[in-house]
Structure formats: structure tokens, C-alpha cells
């Protein structure tokens, strides 16, 4: 089955009001080209589930978001995501704030087709008091109370991988695939942008196949976009773009806000975006961060 498509074709399959999972972590390996395609679309009223970074900030600032399910939204080296912060402080979005591990449990519950996973995480905190939809339940096996972390069912997930074949075998060769496998499993449809399209026999080498973290049946669409994670990192290919994130963050203090940033960089296509940020060679030359 050939699942290759364009970013526009993938985004055309999304609908207003959908719950969208976004893979990656903070400023690391986000499917930013797909996020940019949403920014160019008419989509609105989305619920976004993510270990958030500028993906969440941009979608909030552009008015695409009704609700964010998050444990953090951060650019790491810039701790506070400027546009998410604005959205929260203006009260313009609904939120479901949970613990990082609770998000993992919610994605697992959705992946496994069960309504919830019991955990003690969240007990005694405002995660429970501020989320009336998260129930605390009795256990049939002990006398303690437990948090019933509900399944986070996703209508679609967006993920960026290093390499993929057209059948949807996706490889993440960087040191961490984060929770991307669970985002793929928790979603009805999963669209994966990739830095490089490869032939299937690339995976015949077990060392390469070992870095495939979900089965191709979980992949709906494959969208080859070299550099598609920019300005986030796609280790080992490129790091995150520190000057770009600084400019993005500074734009939140300008009168024009996100519109100024989008006017300068977004463009009508990914090709135009990449020209606006210095081209693919410049993206590929960005040094990996030292942690």
C-alpha cells in the first residue's frame, strides 16, 4: 500500500473540532511542517494533546485551538512558551493540565481500548481538583483511592520521523522516540512527516529495523519533507534553531505578535518557508544541543 501524500493532503483529512496528538517533546522533533500546513488552513476548534513546544504556541496564537491537554509547554532553553502563556493569561483556551506520566497512561489506555488506567499520580494535587473529568475511584483490591486516568483518544496524530518508506514503516534514529509510538497507537489516523523517504530494503538491516517503534498498520500517511521538523531538532540530523526560537519568542512582545512572525516566515508552502529561514542546507547545518 502506498501511503505517500503531501502535507496539504494530510491536513485536508483533518476536521474542525478534532482532537489532534502531536509527537515530539518541547523543542525536539516536532512535525512542524504539518503544523505550518494547519496554520495555512481554515481548521479551527482543535483540541491539541502534546508534550508541548512552539507547535502548541503557534496553533494557540493563530486561533486554531479550543483546548490544550498538556503537562508542560516549553522551549526548554526558553522555559516559558510565549504564545501559550499569552493564551492562558488571556483565558482564551480551555485546558486539561495533567502530569507528564499521566499523559503517557492516557495514550496507552486509548491505544489498548480501555477506558482508563489506575494510578496514584495526581493524588493530593490540583491536577485532580482542576480536572473534574478525571475521576478518583475505589480499588477492588485495596482500601486506597486511585486516579482513573481516562483514555486520551485521538482523531489524528502528527509525528516527524527521520526516515520512512511509502508503506508507513517509520524510523526514529535519534536517541529518543519520546511517546511517539503511543501517539501513533492512540490515534484513529497517524500522519508522519519524514526527513527522508527510503526503499523498504533499507529496513532489512536489523540494526535499522530496531529503530522502528510502531507497526506500519498504525501509519495512515507518509509525507516526505526534508528539514520538516525545523525550527525543532531532528537528532541526529540537525539541532533546534536557537536564533529562530529567540526571534519567535521576541515576536510575542511586538505589536504585530504572531502575525509578524507568520508574515516573515510561514510562506504559502514549505519550500517558501525554507527559503525564508535560509534553506535546507542551513537547517541541516544546525548543531545538535549539548545536554
Amino acid at each position: 500500500m502506498n501511503k505517500q501524500m503531501t502535507a496539504a493532503q494530510a491536513v485536508a483529512q483533518l476536521r474542525d473540532g478534532m482532537t489532534i496528538g502531536i509527537g515530539g517533546w518541547g523543542p525536539r522533533r516536532k512535525p512542524m511542517a504539518l503544523v505550518r500546513e494547519i496554520l495555512r488552513s481554515d481548521l479551527k476548534e482543535l483540541t491539541v494533546v502534546a508534550y508541548g513546544g512552539a507547535d502548541v504556541g503557534m496553533l494557540c496564537a493563530a486561533g486554531k485551538v479550543k483546548k490544550v491537554v498538556f503537562a508542560f509547554v516549553s522551549l526548554d532553553f526558553i522555559p516559558l512558551e510565549p504564545y501559550f502563556r499569552k493564551a492562558r493569561q488571556s483565558g482564551s483556551i480551555e485546558v486539561m493540565e495533567i502530569d507528564e506520566g499521566m499523559m503517557l497512561l492516557g495514550l496507552r489506555a486509548a491505544s489498548w481500548g480501555i477506558p482508563f488506567i489506575p494510578t496514584e499520580v495526581g493524588l493530593g494535587t490540583d491536577i485532580i481538583t482542576q480536572n473534574p473529568d478525571i475521576k478518583v475511584i475505589d480499588s477492588p483490591y485495596d482500601d486506597k483511592e486511585w486516579v482513573a486516568m481516562p483514555a486520551l483518544k485521538l482523531d489524528a496524530s502528527l509525528i516527524h520521523a527521520d526516515k520512512a518508506d511509502v508503506r508507513g514503516v517509520c524510523q526514529i534514529a535519534g536517541p529518543d522516540h519520546y511517546m511517539d509510538d503511543w501517539f501513533a497507537r492512540a490515534a484513529a489516523k497517524t500522519y508522519v512527516s519524514c526527513d527522508e523517504l527510503v526503499e523498504t530494503d533499507y529496513f532489512h538491516d536489523p540494526a535499522q529495523a530496531r529503530m522502528v517503534h510502531w507497526e506500519r498498520s498504525m501509519t495512515t500517511g507518509v509525507i516526505p519533507i526534508a528539514g520538516g521538523a525545523h525550527p525543532t531538532s531532528c537528532s541526529p540530523l540537525y539541532g533546534f534553531d536557537v536564533p529562530h526560537f529567540k526571534a519567535y519568542s521576541a515576536s510575542a512582545k511586538d505589536d504585530e505578535g504572531i502575525q509578524g512572525y507568520l508574515n516573515k516566515f510561514l510562506g504559502a508552502s514549505e519550500d517558501e518557508y525554507q527559503r525564508n529561514v535560509g534553506g535546507l542546507d542551513a537547517i541541516r547545518a544546525i548543531e545538535l544541543p549539548s545536554y
Partner: peptide, 22 residues
Amino acid sequence: GTYDKPKVMMLGARGFPGNSIS
């Protein structure tokens, strides 16, 4: 402010709920 409209939004709860009880 209020939870729906805080005066200063920071990081989020991150892993603190889980760390603290685990």
C-alpha cells in the same frame, strides 16, 4: 488570577505530581 485565567502562566505541572507521590 484564576485557574482559567492566571496572572502568570509558568511551565505546567510537568512531572511533579508523579515524582512527589512516587
